[in-house]
């Protein structure tokens, strides 16, 4: 990049989708001119706007280091984390920032993720021990191979970028969706867990794994390489096997 791009006078245009429910009937884009530097993130540009240009702008953020999962945004139409997307990727063009797709807009860049949190609570997102053990019996041992089976799915930071990437969730919000299914699979695939039966009904339902059409854009946008599309689709196979084999499996026909 040319030396001039980092000169004190350089600037970049940032368009932000505004929606203030008490005064706007629908969202609209507002343009801001923000000082440009090679090492500025889109999140920092939003902070500059809020600090120096318009203090009414609302957006979520916390850690600035891609682990809290708060600053998910549509950046030029693609779901990304604001903290790890840099202005230099767009300069000298403009950056267009909007709230994550498929969620209702609460205010400006803040979306309502109540639906996501509600679904997360329903899948028992914790280890339900396969066998109860006392302290005397020691820890639950796991081999590296058993760890591999769920490790990538445990990297989810609940940023909901995958939901903004999933048209099936946009078309039908009842769909369990990519991230939650990845977490469901993360616990089901853990050798220490015995809670598969409790998570089965949600998984086998029409709005469970069967709401997915393998668009797989969720896995493309995931900032932590969780590959939720893989979690969902390998459970289609598992769900189908269970569907056909439940009558011959002992105790399976009741479900």
């Amino acid at each position: 990049m040319a030396e001039g791009d980092r000169s004190p006078g350089a600037s970049i245009e940032v368009e932000v989708l505004r929606y203030r429910p008490e005064q706007d009937s629908e969202p609209f884009y507002q343009s801001f001119t923000v000082p440009y530097a090679e090492d500025l993130s889109v999140l920092q540009a939003l902070q500059h706007i809020k600090d120096d240009l318009d203090s009414t702008l609302s957006f979520r953020w916390s850690c600035r280091m891609a682990i809290c999962g708060s600053c998910g945004l549509m950046i030029n139409g693609i779901p990304k984390l604001g903290c790890r997307t840099f202005l230099r990727e767009y300069y000298p063009g403009r950056v267009r920032v909007g709230p994550l797709n498929h969620f209702p807009i609460e205010r400006d860049l803040v979306v309502d993720i109540e639906d996501f949190v509600g679904k997360l609570e329903k899948i028992h997102p914790y280890i339900i021990p396969r066998e109860p053990r006392t302290l005397d019996q020691g820890e639950y041992l796991q081999t590296p191979r058993q760890l591999q089976r769920y490790l990538q799915f445990s990297n989810c930071i609940n940023c909901t970028l995958c939901y903004a990437a999933c048209p099936q969730y946009g078309l039908d919000p009842a769909f369990l969706g990519p991230g939650i299914t990845a977490l469901l699979h993360r616990y089901n695939a853990d050798s220490r867990d015995g809670g598969q039966a409790k998570r089965a009904a949600i998984m086998h339902a029409e709005d469970g794994v069967w709401g997915c059409t393998a668009v797989s854009y969720c896995s493309e946008v995931c900032p932590k390489a969780v590959d939720p599309a893989n979690a969902i689709n390998q459970n289609k196979m598992a769900s189908a096997m269970d569907y056909f084999l439940r009558f011959v499996k002992p105790g399976g026909a009741r479900k």
Partner: peptide, 12 residues
């Protein structure tokens, strides 16, 4: 929660 009949069609 109702079980989906999708496995029949999905398998084919």
């Amino acid at each position: 929660m109702k079980r989906s009949s999708a496995p029949i069609f999905w398998s084919m």
